[in-house]
Design a protein around this nucleic acid. Structure first.
Lengths: 206, 206
DNA sequence: GATATTGTGGACCGATCGGTCCATTCATAT
DNA sequence: ATATGAATGGACCGATCGGTCCACAATATC
């Protein structure tokens, strides 16, 4: 893959464009988002935009590529099969904290993540593709957890995935709007409680 | 409130219109749904439509009024304050089963419910209004549960609401697509497990 | 059968959409 | 100074949107 043409843009301009686009995509969803509004917001003309991007979709994809793709790389390197009955949940918790740090280090990633979530169910299927490998990872984690007895076996994995994803998104959305305190303790406490909720739902029931 | 003009339509035609609209609204969301497509699908002209409806929004609202409003009436009559420590979760389970029966008795309500969920986050705010009282009810249930010690007190109610709602929607969506067996036993089992998941997440933690 | 009311087809409207096109400007390298 | 390619402004395109309007058809009332 050759480098994307938009990388030739003046970085500051590219950043402002991406910020405006992220806001618009998040608020309205991909289809409903107005490309006209995005570019007029940053004072860019149609021809300039189409000089750097083939179409609206490419803008979306480039934002993803710049901020979220590195995370999926990390996630792909994660080997759930290594986890044992004793290390399973601590491993998840550690990964969660690590991910949290990564997120905290570049805050705009929160917004991109929300944009991503917001558009998962759009009929264009852009996100569905990008989500394929992370989804497969979650599936692997849950299936492995079932074999070693740390994940409940009485409900289908597909349901557990849906529920876990929905919980994660809900918690993330709530956190973005309600946690402004940067108190590190509070954040760690919260993180542990969140993982606790997943344990409550997903671990085997008597 | 005078009766809505659309009630004068030939019932069979109204039903077909509502079915097509529900499908479109569910698949694409309110804004993205094409009114042109809906009416052409049922062979109705623009003028006919606007003879019975003031605008696109009224169509959405009428579908809601016809199928979901009765449920919210029932929900509003529900008095969570009556529940005690012993009757809390059994009461919820019973209500859940009752609701399930009501749903099962008129299957198209599933589709309308999904349409409703699908559009909750749309920026038009139509659903947000309709959702106000059900949301308030959930809030009352959780707050009351906190005072009698059946709901965990270590996390804010607003977060618990978000998580519970997200779980419910995820489970509902999964069930609609994956439960076709009409085996009554299987359904009751599933219902109990679902309530169990809510108990796992929401009940107090040591 | 004449009259009034209700229902209907379809052309039309302004707005907005994503996307194209081209003439001009700007920067850079020789 | 000039040639060259990248960058830009802005008019324009066809399509689609929700919604309006009016002339005509159907139905009901007398």
């Amino acid at each position: 893959m050759p480098p994307h043409p938009s990388l030739k843009m003046k970085p500051e301009r590219r950043t402002r464009l991406f910020a405006a686009a992220t806001r618009e995509f998040t608020e309205l969803g991909f289809e409903q988002a107005s490309l006209n509004k995005i570019i007029s917001e940053v004072g860019m003309s149609k021809s300039s935009f189409y000089h750097y991007f083939g179409n609206k979709t490419e803008l979306f994809e480039q934002i993803f590529a710049q901020t979220l793709a590195p995370i999926t790389k990390i996630a792909e390197a994660f080997q759930p099969e290594i986890l044992t009955k004793d290390t399973f949940w601590p491993g998840i918790l550690m990964a969660s904290k690590g991910g949290g740090k990564f997120f905290a280090s570049q805050p705009e990633i929160f917004n991109v993540g929300r944009m991503f979530h917001r558009n998962l169910n759009e009929p264009n299927g852009i996100c569905a593709e990008m989500m394929a490998s992370p989804l497969a990872l979650v599936s692997r984690i849950l299936e492995h957890g079932k074999t070693i007895g740390t994940i409940r076996n009485d409900l289908p994995t597909s349901l557990l995935i849906e529920v876990a994803m929905a919980m994660g998104m809900a918690i993330d959305g709530w956190a973005v709007e309600n946690i402004q305190s940067n108190s590190k303790n509070a954040f760690e406490d919260f993180n542990e409680k969140v993982v606790g909720m997943f344990i409550n739902v997903l671990s085997p029931k008597p």
